[in-house]
């Protein structure tokens, strides 16, 4: 399976995605925010730096909002990483969230993690690990030990506790490899009660529907994974699929697009709107440009702070006073119990 970009699918182009969002019959997100006094949407405090280390990945998941895969060559350079380190050194960033693609495939990934730890020994470092990378090549087999050494919080996608649903979304054989990788993480102490090594899992729906209640699903995941595979983890994050990139392509192709948008609108939750992750996060693209969130990054909607659009030009006061750019895809973060990279928000 290839990325939309490699297939030259027009939905790989942000301008075309924005056009599709514009054509949806649902109300604008701005007007919905306006009704509850939240427009223009402003940041609360910038606490999280989410860094996209590159679009290269060993998997090609059907719902991937990054359109990542082995054919994507965009990758963060050590120079851009050095700019990120400067920001982490000079500002109160409590969480550095490393994502991709598979961030571990960036050749400078380990150096970057080590440098972050040198600068800040207490901040939370999250790695969004797709699990199969640990088994993809012998050079990655020691990743659990590396994560442990640097007290990294591991966040990994596992759409379901069965092979059928997981493989249909993430590729053939992904479930079995993910189970093996989770057992390797458990073996070094990740997700084990009493251990401070945090292993969180991510569920997202395998189709055009909303996620279940997070707490109930977490209880079921814990029971099934423990009983069937002797696997333990800390928390399950239930995340809504955002209508961009590959998931948008699926929605359009399967003729579910308008119904899905309508469902997101009907499920709009003002509390979730107040707690959207873009209010305390800055997303850094592989090339160093800054965005309100990972989704705006994929839509090439740079932060509305003209003097601080690149990590090398970081201006905290401009960033904290900016207005967050919103569009109809934002309804994905405000539906039902809300959705963020850390799970539900309401």
């Amino acid at each position: 399976m290839k990325s939309l970009k490699a297939l030259e699918n027009p939905i790989a182009e942000p301008a075309f995605e924005l056009e599709i969002l514009e054509q949806s019959k649902i109300d604008s997100f701005e007007s919905k925010l306006d009704q509850i006094g939240l427009f223009p949407l402003k940041p609360t405090q910038i606490e999280i730096l989410q860094i996209n280390m590159g679009k290269m990945c060993n998997q090609v998941c059907k719902h991937c909002h990054v359109d990542a895969g082995p054919d994507r060559k965009e990758i963060m350079t050590p120079e851009t990483m050095a700019d990120c380190l400067e920001v982490i050194r000079n500002h109160e960033i409590s969480t550095v969230d490393l994502t991709g693609g598979a961030p571990e495939m960036n050749p400078d990934f380990r150096w970057f993690v080590e440098e972050i730890r040198k600068i800040n020994s207490t901040c939370t470092i999250i790695v969004r690990c797709n699990l199969t990378i640990i088994l993809a090549n012998p050079k990655y087999h020691d990743l659990p030990e590396f994560y442990k050494k640097h007290r990294i919080e591991v966040v990994s996608s596992l759409p379901y506790f069965s092979a059928m649903k997981t493989d249909s979304q993430r590729g053939n054989g992904v479930f079995d490899k993910s189970i093996k990788a989770l057992q390797m993480l458990n073996a070094v102490g990740y997700g084990i009660p009493g251990s401070d090594l945090v292993l969180n899992l991510v569920y997202n729906p395998s189709g055009a529907f909303l996620p279940p209640a997070q707490e109930a699903l977490q209880a079921e995941f814990k029971k099934k994974l423990r009983d069937k595979f002797d696997i333990q983890f800390n928390s399950l994050f239930a995340i809504t699929n955002i209508p961009i990139s590959r998931f948008l392509e699926y929605l359009v192709r399967s003729e579910n697009y308008e119904d899905y948008m309508e469902k997101l609108l009907q499920s709009f939750n003002p509390i979730a709107a107040e707690n959207v992750m873009c209010r305390n996060t800055i997303s850094v693209g592989w090339d160093g440009f800054l965005y309100d969130c990972d989704f705006n990054q994929m839509l090439d909607l740079k932060v509305d702070a003209p003097d601080s659009q690149h990590i090398a030009d970081w201006n905290m006061s401009s960033l904290t006073s900016r207005s967050i750019i919103v569009n109809k895809h934002c309804f994905g973060c405000t539906a039902g119990a809300g959705s963020s990279c850390g799970g539900t928000t309401a």
Partner: peptide, 12 residues
């Protein structure tokens, strides 16, 4: 069908 999926049930 939608509701059971949204409650976390699988096809089986």
């Amino acid at each position: 069908t939608t509701d059971t999926l949204e409650k976390g049930c699988d096809e089986e």
